[in-house]
Structure formats: C-alpha cells, structure tokens
C-alpha cells in the first residue's frame, strides 16, 4: 500500500521557484491499477519518480508498505527499488550489448542471485511475455513491442509488489501497444499494484482510477471506466458530479 501525504517537489530556477508537485496526497491500495494523466509538465513523471524512489520529494511523507521512504539512505532506496518496484519506460532502456535474456536477468545480478537460478527465472519471465524464442537476440534485433515486453519481463523478474509504467505504449503502434497493455493488466490481475503514466485515454480507461494532474496539483480523480474524452478530463469544471470520486 502506498500513502502519499502533502508531497511537494520544488525546483529553484534562479530566483524563481518552480513547483513540480504541489500538495499531492493520495492512497493507492495493493493491487490497484492507477493511471496518472496530465499535459506535459504537469508533474506526472515527477510523481512517478518519487513513487518509484528514484527521486525524493522536497517535503511531504511517503509510506511504502508502512515504511517511511523519505527517511531512507541511497543504498536503502536502491534496495527498495530492487525488491519492491519494477519500472517500464517509454523508451524501453534495454542495454544494447546484452541479449534479451541477460537484460531480463539484470536486476537479479544486483540482488546477488546465483547464475543458474538467474537463468531459470529469466527464462520463466521471458516465456511469460511470449518471447521464449527471442531470448538470445540483442535488443536491436527486436521490434518495439518485443523490446517493451522484454522490459516488462525485466520489471517483474524480482517479483515486486509495485509496477510503474511511464508511457509504456508511447513508442508503440496500437497493435503491439495492445499486447503490452494486456500483459500489464494481466500482471495487475495477479495482484501487482500498477501505476501507469499516460497521455492516452484508451490506456487510462483500463485503470480503476485516473488521477488528473495540472500544474503539479491533483485536478480531479475519476473512475477509469467513465473516461471518455480528454476534454472531459481537463475541463476546468468537471462535466458532472458523477465523475467525482471523492
């Protein structure tokens, strides 16, 4: 379970202060699927990075599974990322010189998992995204959709409780995007908490809850199945009280 309370992220730009996040508070239940939407610069990636322990808030509290993450040292944060969090990025971030299998196995290298077990678990993970036949191929030999599936396999190979996806379909055509989303939703149904940052209402619609950010603050939260158009989400006044969750 994730509990964010009064999270601020402020950058000093010369004399000006830029608030990337303003007073964001929310609770995300284990196994929930949350989509974060918002225009560029609305702070959605910053929020995802803070939730992913890649970045620290300027102020506010962040409890991950009851642990106050803001108090942890860099090494402890690395340990949290290793054990509890999986990342999927828009641009895949596969290491080009390593085979698909070695990319999937990478987190286990830092966990000190023995080589034989690493191989076995990596094969299992790559098989679960339907790429068993592509294990020995380098990323350059894979299609965009295949790359992202390898990245998903890498993100879950340590069996984390939380999966963070930053525009997971942003670089993909709709067919392969669909495949990736199916895999992500499948994982979510098996109990993993899934947080997706997206521009695409079709992606957001899959989530149970959609958080809409503008200028670093939560504009509104709506049920995913009620998302129809972007206008609907971003209009200053909500189109109807039925869309309000809280």
């Amino acid at each position: 379970m994730i509990r964010l309370s009064k999270i601020w992220k402020t950058y000093e730009m010369g004399t000006q202060k830029l608030h990337a996040l303003q007073d964001v508070s929310t609770t995300i239940e284990q196994g929930e699927h949350l989509a974060i939407m918002g225009p560029s610069g609305s702070g959605k990636s910053t929020l995802l990075n803070i939730v992913g322990c890649l970045d620290q808030p300027t102020s506010g509290e962040y409890f991950l599974d009851g642990e106050d993450v803001a108090q942890l040292s860099d090494d402890d944060l690395a340990e949290v990322r290793l054990r509890k969090i999986g990342f999927v990025f828009q641009s895949f971030h596969l290491i080009p010189r390593l085979s698909a299998l070695a990319n999937v196995a990478l987190p286990m290298v830092f966990a000190g998992v023995p080589a034989a077990e690493r191989e076995e678990r990596a094969r299992e993970a790559i098989d679960s995204v339907g790429l068993a036949d592509w294990s020995d191929h380098k990323p350059a030999e894979l299609s965009g959709g295949q790359k992202q599936r390898v990245a998903v396999a890498r993100a879950v190979v340590m069996r984390p409780g939380l999966l963070l996806a930053d525009e997971p379909t942003g670089n993909l055509d709709s067919a392969s995007g669909r495949q990736v989303l199916d895999i992500l939703c499948g994982l979510n149904q098996q109990g993993i908490t899934l947080i997706t940052v997206t521009h695409d209402p079709n992606v957001a619609r899959l989530a149970e809850r959609v958080m809409v950010l503008t200028d670093g603050a939560i504009l509104r939260e709506v049920e995913g199945r009620k998302v129809s158009t972007l206008d609907d989400l971003f209009s200053p006044v909500a189109s109807g009280a039925r869309d309000e969750l809280a």
Binding site: G52, L54, D74, D75, A78, E79, R81, L82, R83, F87, F89, H93, I95, L106, P107, F110, A111, R154, M158
Partner: peptide, 16 residues
C-alpha cells in the same frame, strides 16, 4: 548515462 540510470532504477547501488 541512460544505462547507468537504468541500472540504478533496477536496484544497483552507487558502489555497484
């Protein structure tokens, strides 16, 4: 740079 960022994201510590 991006490889290093990725390694950190998947759990590599600074000393790794």
């Amino acid at each position: 740079t991006s490889e290093i960022g990725l390694l950190k994201a998947v759990g590599a510590r600074g000393r790794d």
